[in-house]
């Protein structure tokens, strides 16, 4: 159990999250995948705090901040999802392409 293990693990989580973001059709599914990516990042912070930092407290504070920010993000994103759902009656991202060129 070394830092490298954790880095590889968190990179895998990140890649899995990216895969989810790229393949999910439902907007909520994408948000879910984003959570996976964030989770990987958090794990990375924690691992560095544990294995490397001279000041591990800072490393512990960071995941907490990330959680708070992701809570904000979730709140706003889910509000958007709600209003989008109300407007479009569907959350299929294939159809959400008003910004195409």
């Amino acid at each position: 159990m070394t830092l490298s293990h954790f880095i590889i693990l968190s990179l895998m989580l990140c890649a899995i999250g990216v895969y989810g973001v790229l393949t999910r059709r439902n907007l909520i599914g994408i948000l879910l995948s984003v959570e996976v990516i964030l989770n990987g990042a958090n794990l990375n912070f924690a691992a560095f705090a544990h294995f490397r930092a001279f000041d591990p407290t800072a490393g512990a504070v960071f995941p907490i901040f990330v959680m708070a920010v992701s809570a904000c993000e979730m709140a706003v994103a889910l509000a958007i999802v709600i209003s989008m759902y109300r407007r479009k009656k569907r959350l299929d991202v294939y159809r959400l392409e008003e910004l195409n060129g």
């Binding site: 879910l32 958090n42 924690a46 512990a60 809570a71 979730m74």
Partner: peptide, 27 residues
Amino acid sequence: ALYIMLQLEFVALAQIMLYIGGIIIFM
């Protein structure tokens, strides 16, 4: 569980309470 292994108990608790208890439920 991994956080606990890294001796970051508070983060682990926050993870459970905030993420699982808050965000995922919301979702």
